[in-house]
Amino acid sequence: MRWFAPKTRQDIWDETVEGPLGDIEAAERIRAICDAAASSAAGLACSDKRGSERYERAAKVAMEIAMKISDGLMRDDAVHRIVNLCMRANDLKTAQILFRAIHAAWIRETVQRDHPTLAQ
């Protein structure tokens, strides 16, 4: 009786992608992943294990997608979004590593302004 079975919620980062993504589609997907995972990342302050697992999966998938973006500015913007997600989750180590991967000066300045602890 599948009617009464608990339904598992599938997150956007768990969905399969048909075919390769272009740069614009990849950036849109990263934006959607970061927006969807923001609540899990914010819940990490309460040390919620399920929220932590959701955040880690979301960040991992977003990073994998970002590595495949060929346009430098789009990739830097996508990494900026992932850094914001990491900072919401208090994952300073990952955020610092990703911050160093941003090449565009104006995006680096924006990240430094938003998160001054990364500049240290």
Rank of each mutant, 00 (worst) to 15 (best):
M1N: 14
R2Y: 12
P6K: 05
P6E: 07
K7G: 06
K7N: 12
T8K: 14
Q10L: 09
D11S: 14
D11F: 13
I12H: 00
I12R: 05
I12S: 01
W13N: 00
W13M: 05
D14N: 09
D14Y: 04
E15K: 11
T16F: 06
T16M: 09
T16R: 12
E18G: 01
E18Q: 08
G19A: 07
G19E: 03
G19C: 02
P20C: 03
P20R: 05
P20A: 11
P20G: 08
L21T: 06
G22M: 02
I24K: 15
I24Y: 12
I24V: 15
I24F: 13
E25W: 02
A27P: 03
E28P: 11
R29S: 05
I30D: 00
I30T: 06
R31V: 06
A32V: 09
A32F: 04
C34K: 03
C34H: 01
D35P: 04
D35R: 11
D35W: 07
A36Y: 00
A37Y: 00
S39V: 15
S40I: 04
A41E: 06
A42W: 03
L44H: 06
L44F: 04
A45S: 11
S47H: 15
S47N: 15
S47K: 15
R50Q: 07
R50Y: 03
S52A: 10
S52G: 15
S52H: 06
E53K: 11
E53C: 09
R54V: 07
R54K: 11
Y55W: 03
Y55L: 05
R57E: 13
R57I: 03
A59P: 01
K60G: 07
K60D: 08
V61R: 02
A62L: 01
A62C: 03
M63H: 04
M63L: 10
E64L: 11
E64H: 09
A66C: 14
A66K: 01
K68Y: 01
K68V: 10
I69M: 02
S70Q: 15
D71E: 14
L73R: 08
M74V: 06
M74C: 04
M74A: 03
A78L: 02
A78S: 13
A78W: 00
V79Y: 01
V79I: 10
H80K: 13
H80S: 15
V83E: 06
N84S: 14
N84C: 13
C86H: 04
M87G: 03
A89H: 01
N90L: 06
N90G: 12
N90M: 11
K93C: 14
K93S: 14
K93G: 12
T94V: 13
Q96H: 09
I97A: 10
I97R: 12
L98K: 03
F99L: 05
F99K: 02
R100F: 09
A101N: 13
I102G: 00
I102Y: 02
H103C: 11
A104D: 15
A104L: 09
A104M: 12
A105W: 12
E109R: 12
V111P: 01
R113E: 08
R113F: 07
H115T: 08
H115A: 05
H115Q: 04
P116T: 11
T117Q: 06
L118C: 08
A119F: 04
A119E: 10
Q120R: 10
